[in-house]
């Protein structure tokens, strides 16, 4: 597990009473296969939630449902007051307010870093180009790679690419950030730089949902850890309690496997 700076500044990490995401009795099937079963989850503004679980447990599917990359068949998802329905306007609204980072970064290889960051603000948010570029440079500075702005993604290391992907999402000024295993495709020495960026984001009070196996990150940053297995939320708790005193047997088994060696 990557070593993380222990001095996390918690002054801005405040959970408000305002609901950011409300998932109610959500179900999803792939054909006959029941991927997500009766998911109930309320995320408050300012929360940092880490979702973990064995592979195939539906954790990625869950967060992909939140910005409609996958459609759910039953139940409801309300993001920032906007119900996720079949109405295209709602989908567009949610997607422009929810940022997402992928395991394989999914940067656009034919565009420069700067163009990657300004594309969506210009065409979705209709921001003037100059302004979009200023915003992009601001966030690129934030993820500490402003000098790479005119390079192409292929010229960057994996860690840098993932930080660009984070900056690209931030340029849309999202209220919520989703992370889908952001560090699992990275070499060990690059994991830290991405996690640092994510911690920085958390320190600024961003609402975050992270699917990750970085338990150190979960311990330090998260205010809630959710354990999923077989498409269900099996256990959720504050990180301290979750790690020191897991209740469910499956959680215990999972934690012993992932922390044991």
């Amino acid at each position: 597990m990557a070593a993380i700076d222990t001095n996390v500044d918690r002054s801005n990490m405040q959970v408000s009473d305002e609901v950011a995401i409300e998932i109610d009795n959500m179900n999803k099937w792939y054909g006959q296969f029941h991927v997500l079963r009766d998911i109930d989850l309320t995320v408050y503004r300012g929360e940092r939630i880490v979702i973990c679980g064995p592979s195939g447990s539906g954790k990625s599917t869950l967060i992909r449902c939140i910005n409609a990359l996958e459609e759910h068949q039953q139940g409801s998802i309300v993001v920032d007051g906007t119900p996720l329905s079949s109405d295209l306007k709602n989908i567009d609204k949610i997607r422009s307010e929810v940022g997402m980072c992928f395991q394989h970064f999914n940067l656009f290889p034919h565009l420069t870093i700067l163009e990657n960051c300004t594309l969506a603000p210009i065409w979705v948010r209709k921001v003037p180009k100059r302004e979009a570029e200023e915003t992009a440079m601001y966030f690129l500075e934030k993820v500490k790679i402003p000098d790479q702005a005119n390079k192409y993604p292929g010229q960057l290391s994996g860690g840098q690419q993932q930080r660009v992907a984070i900056a690209r999402s931030l340029c849309m000024k999202p209220k919520i950030m989703l992370f889908d295993e952001p560090t699992s495709a990275l070499d060990p020495e690059m994991i830290k730089e991405v996690l640092d960026t994510m911690i920085q984001l958390a320190e600024e009070g961003m609402t975050m949902l992270c699917v990750t196996h970085e338990m150190g990150f979960a311990r330090q940053v998260a205010n809630r850890v959710i354990f999923m297995d077989a498409g269900q939320i099996v256990e959720q708790n504050e990180p301290e309690a979750f790690f020191s005193n897991p209740q469910n047997d499956r959680t215990k088994l999972f934690l012993s496997q992932i922390l044991g060696h």
């Binding site: 910005n67 567009d92 997607r95 997402m100 394989h104 940067l107 969506a120 999402s169």
Partner: peptide
């Protein structure tokens, strides 16, 4: 890769935009 389509979607680009700016330039190349 499917991720290119998904990244376009997740940024809120519509079909015409993601084809024009993301998919077609790469596919044509």
């Amino acid at each position: 890769p499917k991720g290119q389509y998904e990244a376009g979607d997740s940024l809120g680009l519509d079909y015409a935009q993601s084809m024009r700016f993301i998919i077609l330039p790469q596919a044509l190349k």
